[in-house]
Amino acid sequence: MIINNLKLIREKKKISQSELAALLESSRQTINGIEKNKYNPSLQLALKIAYYLNTPLEDIFQWQ
């Protein structure tokens, strides 16, 4: 199971779900699903999230 700190990191950087979704060329619903652990992002999307949040991938997503 993958757990994530996306919501915590996103809020700390003062970025809304909609703003992050626009940067990622994704939907706000996708970001919401990832944050609620209802959806696991593809590797490509996970890497883009890490890039746009300027945060190491392993700080956002962790195996448990």
Rank of each mutant, 00 (worst) to 15 (best):
I60A: 01
K14P: 02
K13Q: 13
L43G: 04
A22C: 13
A22M: 12
E19P: 01
A21L: 04
K14M: 11
N32W: 08
E58M: 09
M1P: 11
D59V: 08
R10Q: 03
Y51I: 07
L57W: 04
A22L: 12
F61E: 00
A50E: 03
K36G: 09
T55K: 03
Q64H: 13
W63K: 03
K13A: 13
R28E: 15
Y51P: 00
I49H: 00
Y52I: 15
Y51A: 08
I60C: 03
N5K: 05
Y39Q: 11
I31Y: 01
E25F: 08
P41Q: 02
L24D: 00
P56V: 07
I60V: 08
E25I: 07
I31Q: 02
E19G: 10
I34V: 04
N37C: 12
Y52N: 05
T55P: 01
W63R: 03
Q64E: 14
I49V: 05
I2W: 09
R28K: 13
G33T: 07
L24F: 01
K38M: 14
K13E: 06
S27M: 04
N32L: 09
L23K: 11
T30I: 15
K36Y: 07
A50F: 04
F61P: 00
I49A: 04
A22Y: 11
Y39M: 12
W63S: 03
Q29L: 10
I60P: 01
Y52D: 00
I2Q: 07
A50I: 05
P41N: 03
E19Q: 15
Q44I: 11
N54D: 14
E25N: 15
R10F: 08
Y52E: 07
N5Q: 04
A22S: 12
S16V: 03
S16Y: 04
A22V: 11
Q44L: 09
Q17P: 04
K13N: 11
L6D: 03
Q17A: 07
I15S: 01
W63T: 04
L43I: 12
L43N: 04
I31W: 00
S27L: 05
I31L: 07
K36Q: 14
S42D: 10
E35M: 03
E11T: 12
Q44W: 10
G33A: 15
D59K: 10
L45D: 04
L47Q: 12
S16L: 06
L20Y: 02
L8W: 08
N40G: 12
I34H: 01
P56K: 10
Y51N: 08
L53I: 03
R28L: 14
Q44M: 10
Q62R: 11
I9A: 06
W63H: 03
L57K: 01
K13G: 05
Q17E: 04
Y52A: 14
K48N: 06
